[in-house]
Write a protein that binds this DNA or RNA. Sequence first.
DNA 1: CCGTATAGTGTAAGCGCTTACACCAACGAG
DNA 2: CTCGTTGGTGTAAGCGCTTACACTATACGG
Lengths: 349, 349
Amino acid sequence: MTLEDVARRAKVSTATVSRVLNNVGQVKHSTVERVMQAVEELKYYPNLNARMLAGGPNRTLGMIVSNLENPFFLDIFRTLEADAHRRGYDVLVANTDYRPQQLVSTVKMMLGRGVSGLAVVVSEKKPSLIRELSESNLPVVFYDVGAAKANITNIKVDYRMGMQRIVEYLYGLGHRRMAFIGHHTTLEPLSDRKATFLEVAAEYAPRLKVMTVASADGPIGGQNGAREILTSGFRPTAVVCVNDFMALGVLRELHERRIRVPEEVSVTGFDNIGLAEFVSPALTTAHIPREEIGHLIGEALIPGSRGPVEGKEIRIETTLVVRESTAPASTRASRKRAASTRQRAKRAS
Amino acid sequence: MTLEDVARRAKVSTATVSRVLNNVGQVKHSTVERVMQAVEELKYYPNLNARMLAGGPNRTLGMIVSNLENPFFLDIFRTLEADAHRRGYDVLVANTDYRPQQLVSTVKMMLGRGVSGLAVVVSEKKPSLIRELSESNLPVVFYDVGAAKANITNIKVDYRMGMQRIVEYLYGLGHRRMAFIGHHTTLEPLSDRKATFLEVAAEYAPRLKVMTVASADGPIGGQNGAREILTSGFRPTAVVCVNDFMALGVLRELHERRIRVPEEVSVTGFDNIGLAEFVSPALTTAHIPREEIGHLIGEALIPGSRGPVEGKEIRIETTLVVRESTAPASTRASRKRAASTRQRAKRAS
DNA sequence: CCGTATAGTGTAAGCGCTTACACCAACGAG
DNA sequence: CTCGTTGGTGTAAGCGCTTACACTATACGG
């Protein structure tokens, strides 16, 4: 089924059919109906490759993420996709699994497909790529990496402030031994996070002791990280995770070892994924407004949006969300206080 | 950057460049090198739309799912994608949100993009679409719906048997009041599941009382479903969920109401998503081998696979996975037994 | 009644790529 | 020395679509 078949059946030229389908130019009403009918009868649908080749309306965005399995990325994707659909756009999504090499080939794939906008929401870096993309004039949104330019919008989360609040909060609760669990610490944006934790913690030195470990992103990685800490001899009263997804595994490991959270050990995440309030104990975390990020991406990438136009740098703030997984540090004296605090908190909610 | 630019720079014709890029035909070794160098220097990457239009090697698969947020679907996608990448394929994924209308437009989009194979892993139905797809000669894999034909591979999970085992197991534990939580029960494959539960339960009538409710897929839906049951007056000793994703929310609601799982109420899921063993209590569920499904799809869709060729109907069996969320029904007499059983089970693991 | 805008439609030139076919050189067999 | 044969390359015809441009009919003011 091609445009020509439709044209023949409707007894018009392919140009007219195209005009009808794309809703451009002047076409007599009766002709429109005839064409539409032919389209129906033939169950015609356009060959998008041909359309894009011919320079037709390009309504597809690309989005590249590091790990679609992590709800953080998935949520952004879903928000963007919903916005995009509402405007008649499709969005192609691709995974890099935190591999810079994969990022390169994925970007090429997206460009090769001719997306009209690209969101790069990854935690790995590839300077040459970022440069290349900057030099093109394709609308691009970077998350966490790169710098704003004419065609580039930049979204950065104030991770430092979030981490600051978490450590501060924990310290205020009496925690003096904290462990940090991260992943892929060889990747810059991710090692930055670890470094941020360390720097923030350093402000409380020497009273605050810290330890850091790294594993894979996800519950299993979190579990492994927790094991590593627990067998190291270091006895943290609080475990700070680089994200909620990993914290899930930490919670599990603690549960299996009969270490009560938060009575004996407090746990924090980051991101505030939906699951954070569905696990038990519900996770204390720093909220990153993923929906807002999704919307911002849509506005930057879809022309005609009233949104923050291209070439801006947007800073996202986080907010601390205290739930059940944190409590005053477990000292003999404070144990009881911890329990009652928790009770009070629950009653309040 | 087009093929022509590369050709000019390498001082050959576009045909030769194409041959080099696609690794077909005879090309002198020195020419290959010259072309490759030009490609590098120009940072050329092919316009995939043009390539597909011209009938070039089409290495992209499409996958349509009902709810990417549900790890069940995501796992299948990830497995397929990994397999596909290994063979040089890309996979385009799209969501329907359980909307048949969305299914239609998504399929058209996939066809319009010219995918070389399509996996339809959805819980909604659209007979006309299924028929159309059957009539095309595009390799297609259906999950849960449709029937095997020349170009169609069919994967069906033996849901009934899984449900049978769950109900049987629960009944054996002494449960006599069970509630079933489903979602989208107006969609055929999903109402089938509810019906299956009811039929299986009917075998134990009249001693077994049941109740069913429906909400949205996901933890929030599960929570709502649990609330509905709990406020209805019906006091189930076991809650059977249509999938793990919803069970997560049930667990949460029970936790918030201080109803202990499994001591007071047992909960089961279905699918055995990764998270099932990371929540507390870990979820008893029926395992669906999602990785196997992913692999099967890859084998059916990627030519040259040694796998089960087209036109087959494949039946997937489930296995009961008993974890912490189920225990003997809570009667005054059995309460203690329940606790000790659980202890024993844990020590065993 | 003519000139000129204007609505409505057709013609045809690409978009960047693949590939059938044509072509040429080199080479061994006869 | 001539004739297939084969390795290596170029030429050009599309793939299905969009769109600039050309064209025809109709309407309308002068």
